[in-house]
Design a protein around this nucleic acid. Sequence first.
DNA 1: TACTCTATTGAGAATCATTCTAAGTTTAGG
DNA 2: CCTAAACTTAGAATGATTCTCAATAGAGTA
Lengths: 146, 146
Amino acid sequence: MRPEERAQRLLQELERHGYRTTPQREAVCQALAYHGGHPSAAEIVEAVRPQGIGQATVYNTITALEKLGVIQAMPLNTDEHTRYDLDTTPHVNVVCSTCGAILDCHAPQLDLLLAQLASQVGTSFESANVVVYGRCQQCQRTQLVA
Amino acid sequence: MRPEERAQRLLQELERHGYRTTPQREAVCQALAYHGGHPSAAEIVEAVRPQGIGQATVYNTITALEKLGVIQAMPLNTDEHTRYDLDTTPHVNVVCSTCGAILDCHAPQLDLLLAQLASQVGTSFESANVVVYGRCQQCQRTQLVA
DNA sequence: TACTCTATTGAGAATCATTCTAAGTTTAGG
DNA sequence: CCTAAACTTAGAATGATTCTCAATAGAGTA
Ligand SMILES: [Mn+2]
Ligand SMILES: [Mn+2]
Ligand SMILES: [Zn+2]
Ligand SMILES: [Zn+2]
């Protein structure tokens, strides 16, 4: 999905739940969508600051989107701030413990695991947050050279 | 593994890496081991306060254990504080989004998933943090009644 | 248009988990 | 004993997030 489409989807979801569409919310949704990766609140605050948008509004919008389940909080233990995932379908987030890069991996195995777990434990799952810490290929190469 | 054993293992691991065994560290390790679930730093601070142990020491000890890889930080997005897992082997943590209970699920599927991912992405993984949010059986029943 | 009522915004203050500082205490080794 | 390094801890600092509340914008209405 293209960034512009994604931004629209975020706004639509807000509207669908009674939130007004405002220039500020539009800017926040666009910043989220155009980030491309796993944005942190601070990064979005930074991105929309030139447009004179306050941090309270950024946090409010992000929290609203999170409550609607259209984005997902993703706290990490390497980084100080929580990051957000625009992809709420279950997938593995591979976090490089050296450079912090985050790589998405959609493995069918994960869906199997969750399905099996659901039937076993007898619960319906709302969301999954799968994070694996390792070293990305680039950092692995760098380490070998050094 | 019994709590007392676990506490010993934590201390041994500290000692093995050059940390002295002190009464404070002993108390912190015991509090961690006897917690039974997934303790937060605040809970440990609380648990050892009667023994006159300061929060700085608790945080220092926990951070040391975490660096040694013998416990693992587990930030959640339901709760405000990071929790710690004494079981660092990959497993699914099922978090009840209603009551906050955390259930460990060791599913062989997960090991398969990680192995496959490692060969696919070409990285060796250091640790995994798998959290699934849902509703525990007890809260599910309560909801049905209400 | 003019008005009203509610949602929204945002600067700045407050909160709160975690980290840092710095001064005192312990201890291993000689 | 000495000494140097490790350890402890009260309290201050930090920093992400949340809250407050006065000002603003906008939708619906007359
Ligand atoms: Mn992701
Ligand atoms: Mn666990
Ligand atoms: Zn990397
Ligand atoms: Zn529950």
